[in-house]
Amino acid sequence: MAKNDKDMMESAPRKIKLSASSKAFYVICYGIVLLVAVVCLIPFLLLLSGSVTAEQWISFHGFSLIPGEFSLEAYGIIFKTPERILRAYGVSIFITAAGTLLGLLLTTMTAYVISRKDFKYRNWLSFFFYFTTLFNGGMVSTYIFYIQYLHLKDNMLALILPGMFNVFYLLIMRTFVNNVPFSLIESAKLDGAGEWRILFTIVIPLLKSGLATIGLFLALGYWNDWYNAMLYMSTETKYPLQYMLYSIQQQTQALSRIAAQAGIQVQNLPSNSLKLAMAVVATGPIVIVYPFVQKYFIAGITIGSVKG
């Protein structure tokens, strides 16, 4: 069904004759999109190729699109203890799934409330949320508070709660909810439907594109988060993948910074190829999964739009 909708959407404009200026537009349009795609793709290919290049070669010749001297050593190191990586995948998937679902629920409910024009405190509430983008406690006091009062040290909730709700998502979601005609809600009310029923049976089905967008952002946010893990996690079995990536990538710099002052002899720093290989390992799943998700994502958008 979704397929039909899409076909309709996509084939429709083709029937119209293109004027010369429209043709020129399409040429530029395709050209620019292609160019942007290439600019985005090349660094990623460099990354891939760098991850399978021998370290010494990179050190002397820099990066190239085709590996100068092929070597799988970096991957060998990463997968030497595969259970570490697999466990990290597990943690990442868990927090992403749990966080995204809960976050979507919270965001949608709240967005629905603040978009209700008959709700007296909607402006006040919006400002309550918006205020947090301007003012925050800063890293230090937030850290102290989370650990001392919320006991989030080494607690998985520390990875889920902070990213669950975001004003940015809330306001985007509100623009989607605003597109749902208020008359629909009112008539449902007249029919005796309660707020919960209106939200879940009438509004949410019309929000598919919004849910897909915010869901994607929430998921990306959780998947890419290393910061909370860095601050709050201390048991290795609870480390998400991105945090492992982050520490591998950053340790060289941090070490060289202190080496001058400390009488420390540093032995095995991660090589450039290891950093890149780790990036591939951490990003790979998303890049592979995204096109599949995208299918539903686009389908969701189309369905939502046809009805809305």
Binding site: L106, F128, T132, G137
Partner: peptide, 18 residues
């Protein structure tokens, strides 16, 4: 409906401001 987000933000963002 607004309560969970309200409480979450109050606890996670406002309290640490102190």
């Amino acid at each position: 409906m607004a309560a969970p987000a309200f409480i979450l933000v109050l606890v996670m963002s406002y309290f640490p401001m102190s």
